[in-house]
Amino acid sequence: MRHLLVFADRDDAEEVAETVAEEFPQMMPTVVRETLAGEDDAEDAQWLVVVEDHDDTLPPEDVARLDALAEEYDGWRESD
């Protein structure tokens, strides 16, 4: 399973990625920029922290922590 933490600001995404890496050393979060379909303005890009859970073994309390981190920085979590 892949968890996508979505943010409007790059700095927020990078800070959350650092926190995830510290709190979940088994995860290797990456920060990527996602341009919204049909948008020409670079300001409309979202920043994603991609957290791979290859074995789908992340316990519910850790998923809740990812949700809390996202909300703390005015973002949200999506699962893929």
Rank of each mutant, 00 (worst) to 15 (best):
G75K: 03
D56E: 03
E78I: 01
V6W: 06
L66D: 05
T35K: 15
E72H: 13
S79A: 03
R33G: 15
E14P: 00
Q26H: 14
L5P: 06
V51F: 02
L5D: 11
E78N: 03
F24V: 02
R77D: 00
V32K: 06
E61A: 14
W76L: 01
V51S: 00
D44T: 15
V50P: 05
D12V: 02
S79R: 08
D56H: 04
D12H: 12
D55A: 01
D9P: 00
V20S: 01
A42Y: 14
A68K: 05
R10G: 13
D55M: 04
D44Q: 15
V49Q: 11
Y73R: 11
E34Q: 06
D40S: 14
V63H: 08
D56T: 03
A42R: 13
V31M: 11
V20M: 03
P25H: 11
R2P: 14
P29D: 07
V31R: 13
D67G: 06
V6F: 03
V16H: 03
L5A: 09
D12T: 02
D40W: 15
E34K: 07
E78Q: 08
D62C: 08
M28S: 10
E39H: 14
V16Y: 11
V32F: 11
H3T: 07
D12W: 08
L48W: 10
T19M: 05
L48T: 04
E15G: 08
E71W: 05
L69D: 04
A8N: 14
V51M: 00
E14L: 10
D11Y: 09
E23Q: 10
L36N: 13
L4A: 08
E78A: 01
V6H: 07
R77H: 09
D56R: 08
D53P: 02
T57W: 09
H3Y: 11
H3F: 09
L48H: 10
A68S: 09
G38L: 10
A8W: 15
V31A: 07
V6R: 02
Y73D: 06
E43F: 13
V16M: 08
L69H: 08
D55E: 12
E14K: 07
E52P: 02
H54P: 09
E61S: 13
D55L: 04
V20H: 01
L48K: 00
M27R: 09
S79M: 04
T30K: 12
R10K: 13
V16I: 12
T19G: 01
E18H: 04
V50N: 01
A64P: 01
R77G: 07
A70V: 02
E23K: 07
R65Q: 02
W47R: 07
P60M: 00
E23C: 09
R33Q: 15
F7L: 03
T35R: 15
A45Q: 12
L66G: 06
T57C: 09
V20K: 00
D80H: 10
D55K: 09
D44Y: 15
D40I: 13
A17G: 01
E23S: 11
P25T: 14
A70E: 09
W76K: 01
E71P: 00
E43W: 12
P25V: 14
E39I: 12
L58I: 02
V63P: 07
A17D: 06
T57D: 08
R65M: 04
E43M: 14
G38C: 02
V51E: 00
F7S: 03
M27N: 02
S79P: 11
E34G: 08
G75D: 05
E18Y: 06
L36S: 14
L58P: 10
